[in-house]
Computed example of a mutant assay.
Amino acid sequence: MNGVLVSLTEQPVETTLDYLGYMHEHGFRYIFTSLQMPEEDPLDLLEPLGRIGSFAGEHGMIFMADVSPRAFENFSLAELKSSGVTGLRIDYGMGSREIAELSHEWLVAFNASTIDQEFLSELRELGADFSSLQAWHNYYPRPETGLDFDSFTNRNAWLQDQGLQVAAFIPGDGELRGPLHEGLPTLEQHRGQSPFASYLELYQSGKVDHILIGDLSLSDSTMQQFIAWNEGVVLLRVHGARPSHVWTQVHHNRPDIARDVIRSEDARRSYSAAIEPENCVERPTGALTLDNDNYKRYKGEFQIVLNPLPADERVNVIGYVDEWDIPLLPFLQRSGHPFKFLVTMDKGR
């Protein structure tokens, strides 16, 4: 299940509710916010918290709040429940007995990096409802502090073996959250990377059950990628595109997987018009190519270049995959997943 992070203070609540409506429409079902903001007056948080909670209840969304013993000095459990909060993310400071009791009334998430076997065994002895327990990773605003991928996946495999669902965060690329505005990923390798590429990596090999956008919004083109994914297609952004029939087609890599290129099994069979040699230049990774008339029976073959190739008078370069979407290519090479293109006017990121 996918979700979003929202701030109670960094933007008007009306903006947040519009964003939540849009994300709910496209399959996002978790809302996460933090109540650990000592610099804020708790009374200023109740109104946006309640409005977001009402939205969550009306739309069947799970509303998680990051809490600590200090937060409970300002908000009682009764106040949180009446505000529409349905889950508590508890990082520290609460005993096992309290957590076991909460699990029978709340969805409860722990810090995925600090859970150990002794803690889980104690919860089982105390009769905790494990169907209401989850493990959530932190997000890391400061560069260089995000988690290592191998350690992350090893821990997630152990957590899932313990019967816990795992959640993690990926960065956004719209309005970034303060105070540093450098992305809020769980994994350091995702900082500055395409949100959709980060999502796909977690989906494919991260051993996670829930993926949340850590920042306050996504760019329009990234959102189009998530919408296309919900429709079963990977959307690649393209710049420098020359006119071609391939941009409107849905493609699949051939099952006989090539080393150097992704070969569309759909393009050549549907096109018979002449293709004159044009822009026969070097082919870097991400180049989009169409074989011209000089390639005889291969005329009309459409490829995405994986490994740099030299210029060839038989091959026209008709565009380039956006730099941010290059990490998607290994997935397309091996998964057989359908893909299509979004032609943009810029020159890549």
Rank of each mutant, 00 (worst) to 15 (best):
L309Q: 15
Y19R: 13
L236P: 02
D220E: 15
V233T: 14
L20G: 04
E118W: 14
N316P: 12
E118G: 12
S272K: 11
P48I: 10
G286F: 09
D325Y: 06
F32I: 06
V315H: 00
D150V: 10
Y203L: 10
Y298W: 12
S194W: 04
A168K: 00
F32T: 04
S272T: 14
G192D: 11
Q303W: 10
E58L: 14
V166E: 06
L102C: 04
E182A: 13
N294E: 15
V108T: 07
A71H: 00
E201C: 03
F119S: 15
E188A: 06
L46T: 03
G183K: 01
V321C: 11
Q193V: 13
P171K: 05
W158M: 07
D66E: 13
Y199F: 15
P69E: 04
E125G: 15
L123V: 14
V234G: 02
L329R: 07
S34P: 04
L329Y: 00
Q249T: 03
S132H: 15
N156G: 12
W324I: 01
L288V: 04
N156H: 05
L187Y: 07
P12G: 07
F169A: 04
H59D: 02
G3L: 07
T248I: 08
K347D: 13
T16M: 05
E278A: 13
T289N: 08
T33F: 08
